[in-house]
Simulated assay, not measured.
Amino acid sequence: MDFRFGELFSGPGGLALGAKSAKVIAGGRSFFISHVWSTDYDKDTCTTYRHNICPDNPKSVICCDIRKLDFETLKKISEIDALAFGFPCNDFSVVGEQKGMNGVYGPLYSYGVKALKHFQPKFFMAENVGGLRNANDGNSFDKILNDLQEAGYVITPHLYKFEQYGVPQARHRIIIIGIRNDINIKFYVPATTHRSPITCREAIETPPISQDVPNNELTRQSQQVIDRLKFIKPGENAFTAFLPKDLRLNVKGAKISQIYKRLDPDKPAYTITGSGGGGTHVYHWKENRALTNRERARLQTFPDNYVFYGSKESVRKQIGMAVPSLGVRIIFEAVLKSFAGIEYSKIENNIKKSICSNRIDTSPIVLFEEQPEYAIC
Rank of each mutant, 00 (worst) to 15 (best):
M1N: 05
F3G: 05
G14Y: 11
G18Q: 07
G18T: 09
A19P: 00
S21L: 13
A22W: 03
A22R: 07
G28A: 10
F31S: 00
S34N: 11
S34P: 00
V36S: 10
S38R: 04
T39N: 14
D40K: 08
D42Q: 13
D42E: 12
T45G: 03
R50D: 03
P55E: 13
P58R: 11
D65F: 03
D65V: 02
I66F: 01
R67F: 03
R67H: 07
F71T: 00
T73K: 15
T73I: 12
E79S: 15
A82R: 03
V94D: 08
Q98H: 13
G100M: 03
N102M: 03
V104E: 14
V104M: 06
Y105Q: 14
Y105C: 12
P107K: 05
A115F: 02
K122W: 00
M125D: 01
A126P: 00
V129S: 05
D142W: 03
D142T: 04
Y153G: 01
K161D: 13
Q164D: 11
V167N: 09
V167A: 08
A170H: 10
A170P: 01
R171D: 04
H172V: 06
I175K: 10
I176S: 09
I176Q: 08
G178A: 07
I179R: 08
I179K: 07
I183Y: 04
P190R: 10
A191K: 15
T192I: 07
P197A: 12
C200D: 02
E202A: 13
A203R: 02
P208Q: 14
S210C: 13
D212E: 14
V213G: 04
P214T: 07
N215F: 06
N216H: 12
T219I: 15
R220P: 01
R220G: 10
R220W: 10
Q221G: 02
Q224F: 01
V225K: 14
V225N: 15
L229Y: 02
L229K: 06
K233Q: 15
K245C: 11
R248S: 08
K255H: 13
K255M: 13
Y260K: 09
R262F: 04
L263H: 05
D264N: 15
P265K: 13
A269V: 03
G276P: 09
H284R: 04
E287V: 05
N288C: 10
N288I: 02
L291C: 09
R294K: 11
R298V: 00
L299T: 01
P303V: 10
P303E: 05
A322C: 06
V328K: 04
R329K: 15
I330G: 02
I331L: 11
F332V: 05
F332L: 07
F332T: 00
V335C: 11
I342A: 05
K346V: 08
N349M: 05
K352W: 04
S354Q: 11
C356S: 12
I360L: 12
P364S: 15
E369F: 09
Q371G: 10
P372A: 09
